[in-house]
């Protein structure tokens, strides 16, 4: 049984390298029963998008207010 620490590590690694079939399997089983890790996974996408938006898109409206 994969721990949450290991599951989050695999989800982070999945953004860097293709996971092995065995890793995908144990991860799939883990997130199917663990709400916390399932949220962690989708939040990694949010962090990525936030980082992409961080510089360019932010503060547009505050600038108009100046």
């Amino acid at each position: 049984m994969l721990s949450c620490e290991e599951a989050t590590r695999l989800m982070s690694d999945a953004r860097e390298r293709p996971l092995k079939v065995s890793e995908r399997l144990v991860l799939g089983v883990h997130v199917s029963i663990c709400t916390g890790c399932r949220r962690f996974g989708s939040q990694m996408d949010v962090l990525h998008k936030a980082m992409q938006n961080f510089a360019g898109g932010k503060n547009e409206s505050t600038e108009d207010d100046k």
């Binding site: 949450c4 916390g36 890790c37 989708s42 939040q43």
Partner: peptide, 12 residues
Amino acid sequence: GHWHQDEKPVAW
């Protein structure tokens, strides 16, 4: 290696 109860991710 499991989330502490109060550290478990919440819905965003």
